[in-house]
Design a protein around this nucleic acid. Structure first.
Lengths: 256, 256
DNA sequence: GGGGCGTCAATTGTCCGACAATCGGATAAT
DNA sequence: ATTATCCGATTGTCGGACAATTGACGCCCC
């Protein structure tokens, strides 16, 4: 009854096409920005039909290694963080991630991000944060949703931390977490003031390049959300579902 | 000189096909595991050619929402974490992430993961960790590379933390970080013993469900890597490059 | 009756050829 | 110099075709 034989892997041609081109890019023989050969040329070189090449190209296109600008020639490209992150967050939704899980992840990521950002942030991002803060205040006064602004605030800090690994690690969680926080803000109006307050303190810490302040206020900020959920009596262990459903209406890349 | 007009987005048909099917899945009208209609049926329903449908399917296939088991009928599916993570780490390599960035991310993620794992880990994973430890010891004695085992050790802990958001956040970093640590282990043989020691302490903490111990030893463990890099005089701010090049030789899914 | 085997239609993977629309660029006209 | 016109190259989509493989059904034998 031994399971001695595995399925022998015969990859369809279109997959091999994709892998072949991918290897060329990964190995650096085709650099981001370079134009790839035309479909017909690829088909001839690889000895397959153009239709097959096209299917292979679709795979690369979705993985972000290749991109069609406008409607013309194919160019190699670096996968965009935004697309990766939004794909990941969609995956998380499908896997029914709960608010608690998001919160725990945010607890690990956001304070650390703030701490790193403090000594590295420059005047430009500080100004953007200040502007974000002002708009948040304004929006809050009008009683409108500050979810996008909240996401932006934290994303700006992540940018300031200047760490691509961390940026990519936190983005998917953030895309789901803050919308989930939005639910809270609607239920618990006073949470808005607390959010604004925390943002102010965090910014203050960053302005003084004071890592401790930035980190600890960020921690309080995140802790607050969980407290808010408890206070509002929202179930934390249930899937966040499609709260963030209408985000990322991504189509073909608009010209640069 | 105002940039008033954006490129108006005309999505090609194959992309619309992909988006249409994706919406059906995201909305839950097609559930993971369900079989999708045949290519011809889809083509007829959407009023496009089968080739076009196929190209659309490739997009979905790459995003993991759809999967072809063996060689037959198309089924909806949840994106696999492993594939997502390895795609992300490839992206990070292309973006030339440095060891320092990975280390900072690991510093944020791993101790928090260990802390969460401590009260949640079950006997099964504890046994697997113990086994991993034994194999690590053995492998180290033989002077062979423990990179895979190291990755596995930390992945097991992440599994024990039972947090999908965190699992997904740390995996891509981990896939690059530990191979980068492998470089260190080859240069600095005594680091192997320190690694083993740390793993032992972490496991001990987990066994006693002592979050503090697990977390603080994990922190020491990660800090050690940076110290090792400094000691070995390896540049930390340079891209990790294709250290993890031969990982993830993923082809089409072997039959279940 | 149940398990194994052949048959057969359905489906996929690949190929071929075709054509309108669009693009890049060169050339001519204003 | 800018605009208009033309031409070849390339992409997006289509139609049809066919071998290989699969799934399902029915048949046969024990």
């Amino acid at each position: 009854m031994s399971q001695t034989f595995q399925r022998l892997a015969v990859a369809p041609a279109y997959q091999q096409v994709s892998e072949t081109i991918e290897r060329e890019i990964l190995a650096g023989r085709i650099k981001p920005g370079d134009k790839l050969p035309t479909e017909t040329a690829l088909a001839v070189q690889m000895g397959v039909n153009r239709s097959t090449v096209r299917e292979g190209i679709r795979l690369l296109e979705q993985s972000g290694l290749v991109r069609r600008e406008g409607g013309k020639r194919l160019t190699a490209s670096l996968p965009h963080y935004g697309e990766l992150a939004s794909r990941m967050s969609r995956a998380m939704v499908l896997h029914e991630v709960s608010f608690l899980e998001l919160w725990e992840a945010a607890m690990a990521l956001e304070p650390a991000t703030a701490r790193l950002a403090a000594p590295r942030i420059g005047p430009d991002l500080l100004a953007q944060l200040a502007d974000n803060l002002a708009r948040t205040e304004e929006t809050l006064r009008k009683g409108r949703s500050v979810v996008e602004l909240d996401i932006e605030f934290h994303a700006l800090i992540a940018k300031a931390a200047d760490n691509k690994a961390l940026l990519l690690a936190r983005e998917p969680t953030s895309l789901l977490f803050y919308p989930a926080v939005g639910v809270l803000l609607r239920k618990l109006p006073q949470a808005g003031k607390r959010l604004l307050d925390a943002h102010r303190q965090i910014l203050a810490g960053l302005e003084r390049a004071h890592a401790e302040t930035a980190e600890s206020w960020m921690r309080k900020h995140i802790v607050d959300f969980k407290r808010g959920y408890a206070m509002a009596g929202i179930a934390m262990d249930r899937p966040v579902e499609q709260i963030a459903h209408d985000l990322s209406p991504r189509r073909r890349t608009p010209a640069a």
